[in-house]
Structure formats: structure tokens, C-alpha cells
Design a binder for these strands. Structure first.
Length: 720
DNA sequence: CACGGAACTA
DNA sequence: TAGTTCCGTG
């Protein structure tokens, strides 16, 4: 095996799964890039550099040559290769770091999906933590997702609460035997992972033999993960590995070569060495990090990037949690249920967090969070020129991601507690934005707009939100997901998405700004890539919706819709607001003073309120400050419910999409939040309604729903 | 250098 | 589908 030194890099396994590259029998370029990146031998040619996930092609010709060799395309050159890379922009796998030559940045969110297509993110969900995780500039150590035990993985708050029907679909599929996640990607594996297997001659020339021992390639990855945690386990859990035998890797020896590469977005954690504790890879995979991906390199919000300090093992549980958390975050953010359209599979959106756990968690979490937050905050603050942010940090450094692994709440251990959610104040604003017009359309409108320039112009107002500019968006990766056929159920959803689900952008409300101002603006327009940048300049209240002429070009029509979603992911900056977990509060709340306390509760389509409302959450401390908001929400909520009722008939998501869109369109202008409620309708599983705790009683009913949903969820999970 | 359309390929 | 090739544009 390689010595740690050889390979360098610590690339998260989840991101780099040989199995990945769904759909294509051959290695994909991004995969190849990662491969090179993780090998020290090629550090002169290509290496991590700059921002998290950013890499620089130091020797374009050489990279092209290597790529050409790999693909048997002797004529390959950087021009061509770069064209291929540009296609990734649309796919959200990569984006270009503007202003830096030969510099690109990975969007690991996407990669996760690619790697784990079986994970149904609600078809749309692509909300894996964004692109590259922060590099350990030193901060690396701060974040660790150490939880060595699964239980630790996510704090209950995060995961449990989040609705994660995500897996359910998978499970179902598995049951049917329809999906084998890895099946398609298998070939790829062989190429990469089995470099030693002799699968690649080309590579052999350099890659494998390159410097270190040959098996390094596969070995390295494998090594990172603990066998137990390896994705295989996932398969097992979900019904079966796509290619069980195929991956010795997962079972592979632990040749950990984790050598922290400073630039690597995935620094290996200093903590658990490969050997000892290291064996247990931290349950949280980077992917799992709650961090919403922030596009902003320096997102105000501290994302906990699991990447740092973790081995990146990936396991189903983690992923699940991650997803849940993600979903949950929606609730936490107070996003309207509509957001869940995208998560058809998500049954239970409620936050569930056992009170008991809370207490326990609070302690630990606090510590970690703090650390992480602090680290992040400082780090980011520096990098980003966000004085405001930094400033904000002062109140609470970025909230670590909700995904934070939390030792306490072990989801498994806890029955779901719905409705327990303590009220959260939300420091964020929610903006829903309409989907971006098709590129062509845009072109028609505004042709010559230079993308970049547009951005900048748009951002003019960004001055400073309170510090965390975060946006939550749910992207969907159709491409990946669809490829695996995961989405059957969600397909309908997709259509919705494509239709243009509004994207939800969550911005922190500056302290100064009134809490009352909860705005929901549609940001769908924003260009994903652009948006990232945009975020950097996050505008205050209103989303500035710069028109980004974007490049959706490549995308097939179908792709576009997804992309929109993806965009979110890509850009989605902010980690879940501190609110998510009460635990975090201390550190996180962007505006320490006000945190929105919102609790989202899901409401069953039927609207029956039979289930007893969990007494939990609302109890939490409501805040008076937000009253206006509350009222507003309340009002909307009511309205939504009404609407919902009407809508219920059409449980079918599939059917709905159109209608939904229509409604949205109509209502868009006027309603900020209202629209969203309907969204919950989804497949009727549980259209989540949100209620702000502060907003009174309304939530109860929802909570019941949540309960139900939760129960359901748990059942589903069991299946897995 | 970067972008992205278009045609083409495997 | 995932590029590859070519090419015009900025």
C-alpha cells in the first residue's frame, strides 16, 4: 500500500466512489480528476489549491495527456478537456473559479449523489453539503466529526427531526430489486479502485506506478473508510450491494493513507488515525455534514464540514441522517412545506428531538459546535471579506451545521419524538425565488450580459446580512438520481421542480432588520454558479435577483429543472441555522438575540388531526420579538391549510406539479410564505406545514402529523 | 483562457 | 450519457 505520503489526499470516500460514475461505463472525467488529485505523484500536475474543493491544473497539457491516455484519446488536449469540464458546470459537479486560471472547484454535493444514487434525495434533493469542505487551514482540526459511534453521528436534532423519507424510497426500490446502486458504476470501480487489478494500463503508466505502490489507488480510498462503515454496509442495509464482491475496497484493508493534505478539501482528520480510532471512521461522511453547501467559499455560516478531520466514511446511516438533517433544516429554517415537494419521499418533516436528548446533547454539542464554529467563523471571516459576517460571528459564530454529529442522540436509540421541537427563532429570512428562465429565454431577454458582471451588479446590495448569508436550497440531481432509476416516485416531483419550484433562500436576518421581515422570495432565478458568488455578496433583504444569464445550455430541457434545484445545492450556503438545534443556539444564532423559533410540523394530507399532538416543541421558548412574523405566518398558515384541504384531493404529486406551479405563479407575487404550504401536499404522505411556534397553536395539528409521519418513517427505515 | 453551441461518437 | 471535436465569441 502506499504510504500515507504517497497518496496524499484524503478524498472522501463518499465523494469518490468508484462505483460512482453512474451511467457511464467508463471513468468519468471528474473521477479521473479526483484520482489525480489524490495522488501525490500528480501534485505537480494538478492539486488542491485555494478554496475548499478547489483545485488547480498546474499542467494542463499533462492533465490532458493523462486524460487522453486514460480514454485512449491521444488527441486530447486541454481545450477539449476543459470543454468536458465545462459541461460539469451544468451538472454542478464543478464550477470554475473565476479569475484563476486552470482552477476549478468541486461541488461535492453533486458527487455524493453521483456516488450514492440510490439515495433518494427526494429526487431533488441534492443538498449535500456543498462543494468543497473547508480546508483545514488549521481549522481543519476544529471540525471533526469524530463520532466514532454511529450514535454519535448526528445529533438527534439534526437527524431525527429531519424528515427523511429519503431512504424509504430506496428501500422500496431495493425491495423490488429494481435498483442496484452500484451496478452501473461497477465498471468504473474496477478501473479506479482496482487499479491494481490491472484494469488500467494507461493509468498504470503513471498513476498507479507513479510513485508509490500500485494498489494505492484503490487502497487509499478504502483505507479511509472503515470497512464496517463502508458503503457496502449501506448496500447491505438497503438490500444488497450493487457489487458486493466488487469492492474489496470496502472491506479492504485499512491501509490508510491518510495524509492530510492541506489543500485537500478533505483533510484527513488528525484525530482518528487510520489505525486506532481511525478504524471507526467517523460516521459522518463529509457528505453528511450538515453544512449546507455554501457556495461562498467563506460562508458566513460555519459549516461543519465533516470533511475535516474525518475519514469520510460513509454509511447508510450517516447518509440517512444527513438527509434527514438536511430536510430538517428546511423545517428549521422555517421553510415552507413547499420545499418538500422535492422530497416526495420524505414523510416526516418534523423535527424530532427528544427533550432529554437535548439536555445531554447540549453539553457536548456545545463544545463541538463552539469549536467548529469558532474555527469556522474565524476562518471564514478572514477569507471572506465579510466584515459583516465576521461581525456576526461575534454573536454566534456560524452555527455549525446541524449535521453536526451529535453523540447523544442516536437516532436509533430514540424513538422519534415529534413535536418536541423547541421553538426556534429564526434569524433567517426565507426567500423563495422563481425558477430561472431557461437559458435561452434569458438569452433572448438579456443577451450580452456578462455573467460575471451581472453578478456583481446584482450583488450590489449585499452589504451584509447579519452575517450568515445562507441559502438553503434543495436541488435535485436528476441526472444522477434518474440514472439509477431511483426516482420513480419522485419523478413527478421532478417535473415540479422543473416547473420551477421556487428555491428557498434563507438569509439571516440581520439583527437590525426586523425579525418580522420574513421574506420569502424566489431566488430560483439566480444562477447557481453565479449565485455562489452572489452569496458572497449576499444582499440584504431582498434577494437581489440578478439575472444571471446562466449556462444551462448544456442541460437538456429536463436537466434544467433539476439544475435549478441543484443550483441550490451548489450554492446553498448556509448551514442550518443555529436554531436547528437548540444546542447550537449559543453559538450559532446569527443574531444571537433572535432566533426564530419556528417549528415545522408536517401535516398529513388528510388533515386529520387525530394523532395526538406531541407536546413537545412548541413549548419551547417563544419569543415575543417576532410577533409580527408570527402573526404573519399564522395567517399564512391558516391559509395554507385551507388551500391544502382543497388540494388534498390531488394527492398525487405527479398531478400536482403543474397545478402547483400555476398557483405559485399566481400567488407568487402576493404571497410570500403562503404558497409554500401547499407544497407539503406532495404525495400526501405528509405535506409539511410549518408553524412557527411562536405562532401559536396552529402547529399542533401539524405535529400530530409529524408524529405519524415519523412513525411511518421509522417503519420504513426498519425495512432497510 | 474561458465559455458554450453544435455535431458527433461510443 | 459523457464526453470529443470543432469552432466562434469575448
Amino acid at each position: 500500500m502506499k504510504t500515507p505520503g504517497d497518496t496524499g489526499f484524503a478524498f472522501p470516500e463518499w465523494a469518490y466512489k468508484p462505483e460512482s460514475s453512474p451511467g457511464s461505463r467508463q471513468i468519468q472525467l471528474w473521477h479521473f480528476i479526483l484520482e489525480l488529485l489524490r495522488k501525490e505523484e500528480y501534485h505537480d500536475v494538478i492539486a488542491w489549491q485555494g478554496d475548499y474543493g478547489e483545485f488547480v491544473i498546474k499542467d494542463p497539457d499533462e492533465v490532458a495527456r493523462l486524460w487522453g491516455a486514460r480514454k485512449c484519446k491521444p488527441q486530447m488536449n486541454y481545450d477539449k478537456l476543459s470543454r468536458a469540464l465545462r459541461y460539469y458546470y451544468n451538472k454542478r459537479i464543478l464550477h470554475k473559479t473565476k479569475g484563476k486560471r486552470f482552477t476549478y472547484k468541486f461541488n461535492f454535493n453533486k458527487l455524493v449523489l453521483v456516488n450514492y444514487p440510490f439515495i433518494d434525495m427526494g429526487s431533488t434533493g441534492s443538498s449535500v453539503p456543498q462543494s468543497a469542505p473547508p480546508v483545514p487551514t488549521g481549522a481543519g482540526t476544529h471540525f471533526r466529526f469524530p463520532p466514532s459511534t454511529p450514535s454519535e453521528v448526528l445529533s438527534p436534532n439534526d437527524d431525527l427531526r429531519s424528515p427523511s423519507g429519503v431512504f424509504s424510497s430506496v428501500a422500496r426500490r431495493m425491495a423490488r430489486g429494481s435498483v442496484s446502486d452500484c451496478s452501473d458504476g461497477t465498471s468504473v470501480n474496477s478501473e479506479i479502485e482496482e487499479g491494481n487489478a490491472g484494469a488500467n494500463e494507461e493509468r498504470g503508466e503513471r498513476c498507479v506506478s507513479g510513485g508509490g505502490g500500485p494498489g494505492g489507488g484503490g487502497g487509499a480510498y478504502r483505507s479511509i473508510i472503515h470497512p464496517r462503515l463502508s458503503h457496502e454496509s449501506l448496500f447491505r442495509m438497503y438490500g444488497g450491494p450493487g457489487n458486493p464482491a466488487g469492492h474489496p475496497g470496502s472491506c479492504g484493508p485499512a491501509g490508510h493513507r491518510i495524509h492530510p493534505e492541506p489543500l485537500s478539501p478533505f483533510p484527513v482528520s488528525p484525530l482518528p488515525g487510520p489505525g486506532g480510532a481511525g478504524l471507526l471512521a467517523p460516521p459522518l461522511s463529509p457528505a453528511l455534514s450538515m453544512t449546507p453547501t455554501s457556495h461562498l467559499p467563506y460562508t458566513p455560516s460555519p459549516t461543519l464540514s465533516p470533511m475535516i478531520g474525518s475519514h469520510f466514511s460513509f454509511n447508510p446511516e450517516d447518509m440517512k441522517r444527513y438527509l434527514q438533517a438536511h430536510t430538517q433544516s428546511v423545517y428549521n429554517y422555517g421553510l415552507s412545506p413547499r420545499a418538500f415537494f422535492q422530497y416526495p419521499n420524505i414523510i416526516i418533516p418534523q423535527p424530532h428531538r427528544p427533550a432529554a436528548d437535548k439536555a445531554g446533547l447540549a453539553g457536548e454539542r456545545g463544545e463541538r459546535a463552539e469549536r467548529a464554529g469558532a474555527a469556522v467563523g474565524s476562518d471564514r471571516g478572514e477569507r471572506h471579506h465579510h466584515p459583516s459576517l465576521a461581525h456576526a460571528a461575534h454573536h454566534h459564530p456560524h452555527p455549525p451545521h446541524s449535521a453536526h454529529p451529535h453523540p447523544h442522540s442516536h437516532p436509533l436509540h430514540h424513538p422519534l419524538h415529534l413535536g418536541e421541537e423547541p421553538p426556534h427563532m429564526s434569524p433567517f429570512k426565507f426567500k423563495l425565488q422563481p425558477p430561472p428562465p431557461g437559458r435561452k429565454q434569458r438569452d433572448g431577454q438579456s443577451q450580452g450580459k456578462p455573467r460575471q458582471s451581472s453578478m456583481s451588479s446584482g450583488s450590489g446590495s449585499m452589504s451584509s446580512t447579519s452575517g450568515l448569508g445562507s441559502s438553503l436550497s434543495f436541488g435535485s440531481d436528476l441526472s444522477s438520481a434518474s440514472g439509477s432509476g431511483l426516482i420513480s416516485a419522485s419523478s413527478s416531483t421532478q417535473s415540479l421542480n422543473s416547473a420551477g419550484l421556487p428555491k428557498i433562500k434563507v438569509e439571516p436576518i440581520s439583527d437590525i432588520e426586523s425579525e418580522e421581515e420574513v421574506e420569502v422570495t424566489d431566488i430560483s432565478e439566480e444562477d447557481p454558479d453565479e449565485r455562489d458568488e452572489e452569496f458572497q455578496h449576499f444582499p440584504h433583504h431582498h434577494a437581489k435577483v440578478p439575472e444571471y444569464p446562466h449556462r444551462f445550455a448544456n442541460g437538456t430541457a429536463a436537466a434544467n429543472p433539476d439544475e435549478d434545484l441543484d443550483e441550490d445545492v451548489f450554492k446553498a450556503p448556509a448551514p442550518p441555522p443555529p436554531n436547528l438545534t437548540p444546542f447550537y443556539n449559543s453559538q450559532q444564532a446569527p443574531t444571537g438575540a433572535h432566533r426564530g423559533l419556528l417549528t415545522f410540523k408536517s401535516e398529513p394530507v388528510e388533515g386529520d388531526s387525530t394523532t395526538p399532538p406531541p407536546h413537545t416543541g412548541s413549548a419551547a421558548a417563544p419569543q415575543t420579538k417576532c410577533i409580527p412574523l408570527k402573526l404573519r405566518f399564522k395567517r399564512r398558515w391558516s391559509e395554507d391549510q385551507r388551500m391544502e384541504a382543497s388540494m388534498e384531493e390531488s394527492d398525487d404529486k405527479k398531478v400536482r406539479p403543474e397545478e402547483e406551479r400555476e398557483r405559485e405563479r399566481q400567488s407568487n407575487g402576493q404571497m410570500d410564505v403562503e404558497d409554500e404550504d401547499r407544497a407539503g401536499g406532495g404525495d400526501g404522505d405528509s405535506p409539511p406545514l410549518l408553524a412557527y411556534e411562536g405562532s401559536l397553536a396552529a402547529p399542533l395539528r401539524v405535529s400530530t402529523e409529524l408524529h405519524r409521519a415519523t412513525a411511518q418513517l421509522s417503519l420504513e427505515n426498519k425495512d432497510c
